[in-house]
Amino acid sequence: MIINNLKLIREKKKISQSELAALLESSRQTINGIEKNKYNPSLQLALKIAYYLNTPLEDIFQWQ
């Protein structure tokens, strides 16, 4: 199971779900699903999230 700190990191950087979704060329619903652990992002999307949040991938997503 993958757990994530996306919501915590996103809020700390003062970025809304909609703003992050626009940067990622994704939907706000996708970001919401990832944050609620209802959806696991593809590797490509996970890497883009890490890039746009300027945060190491392993700080956002962790195996448990």
Rank of each mutant, 00 (worst) to 15 (best):
44 Q>N: 11
12 K>H: 10
51 Y>A: 08
47 L>N: 10
23 L>T: 06
18 S>I: 11
40 N>W: 13
3 I>K: 14
3 I>D: 04
26 S>W: 06
52 Y>L: 14
33 G>N: 15
60 I>R: 00
33 G>W: 14
38 K>S: 10
34 I>M: 04
39 Y>I: 15
57 L>P: 02
39 Y>H: 11
9 I>G: 02
58 E>W: 10
57 L>H: 01
1 M>I: 11
52 Y>G: 03
2 I>T: 09
11 E>C: 11
31 I>G: 01
17 Q>D: 03
35 E>Y: 03
18 S>D: 14
41 P>R: 02
32 N>R: 15
40 N>K: 14
16 S>T: 13
36 K>P: 02
43 L>W: 13
51 Y>T: 07
64 Q>Y: 11
30 T>Y: 15
22 A>P: 02
56 P>H: 06
23 L>A: 15
40 N>G: 12
29 Q>W: 11
6 L>E: 04
20 L>E: 00
62 Q>A: 09
55 T>I: 07
38 K>A: 11
55 T>R: 04
30 T>F: 14
58 E>M: 09
54 N>V: 06
35 E>A: 02
27 S>N: 13
15 I>S: 01
35 E>L: 04
3 I>S: 08
52 Y>F: 14
14 K>G: 15
7 K>P: 03
42 S>M: 04
53 L>C: 03
54 N>T: 08
17 Q>P: 04
62 Q>M: 11
35 E>P: 01
40 N>T: 15
44 Q>P: 10
11 E>H: 07
54 N>P: 01
50 A>E: 03
46 A>E: 04
48 K>F: 05
44 Q>I: 11
27 S>A: 07
17 Q>E: 04
8 L>F: 10
54 N>E: 14
42 S>P: 12
24 L>P: 00
42 S>N: 09
23 L>C: 11
16 S>F: 04
24 L>S: 09
23 L>K: 11
14 K>P: 02
12 K>V: 09
26 S>E: 15
37 N>C: 12
56 P>G: 06
47 L>R: 12
26 S>P: 02
50 A>C: 05
50 A>N: 02
32 N>L: 09
7 K>V: 06
57 L>V: 10
27 S>V: 06
27 S>Q: 06
59 D>W: 07
36 K>S: 14
18 S>L: 11
47 L>S: 09
26 S>Y: 09
26 S>T: 15
38 K>D: 11
12 K>M: 13
28 R>H: 10
18 S>Y: 11
51 Y>E: 10
59 D>K: 10
30 T>R: 10
21 A>R: 02
59 D>R: 07
9 I>C: 09
28 R>E: 15
43 L>P: 09
24 L>K: 00
6 L>N: 03
49 I>N: 00
51 Y>N: 08
30 T>A: 09
39 Y>F: 14
51 Y>F: 14
5 N>C: 13
22 A>N: 12
13 K>P: 00
8 L>M: 13
58 E>S: 12
48 K>L: 09
2 I>F: 10
18 S>W: 12
5 N>G: 03
13 K>I: 09
63 W>R: 03
59 D>Y: 09
14 K>C: 11
10 R>W: 07
52 Y>Q: 08
45 L>W: 03
18 S>F: 10
4 N>L: 09
25 E>I: 07
15 I>E: 00
2 I>K: 09
57 L>A: 02
7 K>C: 10
27 S>R: 08
8 L>N: 14
35 E>R: 02
18 S>H: 11
